[in-house]
Design a protein around this nucleic acid. Structure first.
Lengths: 238, 238
DNA sequence: CGCTGTATTGACCTCCTTCAAATGCGGTGG
DNA sequence: CCACCGCATTTGAAGGAGGTCAATACAGCG
């Protein structure tokens, strides 16, 4: 049940079997339906959340009603580990598809990190990767036009999901509607629709039945100049 | 010399006088000229950098030559505290104006955090704020049009600089050229120029002699719907 | 006083938005 | 099995925000 979480963290640190066991027996696990808020802006978070299955996301709403999805939380991803320090959430986290979520009390995480250096390292690594992804998204929305921007997102998803054992090298689940996708990409849903048609015509991406299929992943990566370095997935050699 | 750093961290934790002293005697300080790379993509960072004076920034370059500025590092800001974990930089850090920079060996930071819980807390707070800013920038470029986007940046800068005692409530140094500003905003320099004219005509912002002046800060904040919560500058009450 | 980099302007183009309507589709109840 | 509902996708037409290219003005500096 925690396999995605453990698989992901393994990229950040050489975890032992004992570490796996510790990570696999954490917190209070529950199922949450699709499109439910887990925590909202202004709230004071008590727990750290780990997505065990399903897609969740972070978002912000502007006063004019526009929404922006800031991050996708895939299986293995967590909400902010130290978030208690900030006191109050400056954005919301919600589910996109039905999710399995583990809620760990802040103290559990702190203890775990203090007592087990490899886990501590893995968690800090995960935090840094989240930041790196956030930076890449900023570049993506600022400097790539719609079609490449969207292709880049799909490349990222394919890699991130592959890491946690979801989907395949050339296909993966994708529970977002085109409207959701528009809120990720900083576009309108109309333009998302047209861009998807373009990508399909080019043989780059097909979106069907809540699944993304990339007939030719190499071509897709070339098209958007995808460089996965920012995901920091290389097994470290020290 | 470390006053900006200490002032900033004071917002994240109740530092003692002793903590101030510890923070004020750190690392190797040097002056760096304007527009110098401090560390570049692909490099393996040894040190953590603290900006003591001047403006620095993070940026990424795409293969098509387009650049995007991902973050501004103002006095008191640091490069990534745990960056050694990632191994390799996925972006560059460079100076914009002449800067005073302190370079702390990774180990110094780790020890400091381990031995002094208040400092540890302050540093983690600073990291979280950086992330929050990054998220807000994503929203800003994705969902606000040029004039509001730019106004929002200036609001943020005024607040952040105020915190570290640089500038004034309605004015602050601004060493960016319009081309730099374009790379921050995800626009072209031509459009930045026209947008600045618009903002000036509206009496919102004047940019002169490497200084930003906001004749009416309230009006500016209203114009772009600025909500400083994401900077998490409220002194905590626990 | 000339040089170099930055700011400014104009004309034109295109990517993306807006608004509104039409089509498709999965699920539900009869 | 079909009719219907609500939601998601698709399409069209028109407009606007911002990009591109290229020339000009300006300012700081040696």
């Amino acid at each position: 049940m925690f396999s995605a979480f453990i698989r992901k963290l393994s990229y950040g640190s050489d975890l032992t079997e004992a570490d796996h066991d510790r990570l696999g027996a954490l917190g209070h696990v529950r199922e949450i339906g699709a499109r439910q808020d887990i925590i909202t802006q202004g709230e004071r978070p008590e727990d750290v959340y780990v997505v065990l299955s399903g897609f969740a996301y972070r978002y912000k709403v502007l006063r004019n009603g526009k929404r922006q999805i800031i991050a996708l939380l895939l299986p293995g991803d967590t909400s902010d580990l130290h978030v208690a320090i900030l006191g109050v959430m400056d954005h919301c986290i919600a589910t996109l598809s039905p999710c399995t979520i583990a809620a760990l009390p802040q103290g559990t995480v702190t203890n775990l990190a203090q007592q087990h250096p490899r886990i501590s390292r893995a968690l800090r690594w995960a935090t840094l990767v989240d930041e790196a992804i956030s930076r890449e998204w900023l570049v993506n929305t600022s400097r790539r036009e719609a079609s490449q921007r969207m292709a880049h997102l799909f490349c990222e998803l394919l890699v991130r999901l592959q890491v946690v054992g979801v989907g395949d090298a050339d296909r993966c689940p994708f529970p977002l509607t085109q409207t959701d996708l528009a809120e990720v990409m900083g576009l309108t849903s109309v333009h998302v629709n047209r861009t998807l048609q373009f990508l399909r015509d080019q043989g780059l991406i097909t979106l069907r039945k809540h699944q993304v299929i990339a007939p030719n992943v190499g071509k897709l990566k070339d098209f958007c100049d995808f460089n996965p370095d920012y995901l920091h997935l290389v097994k470290r050699v020290e």
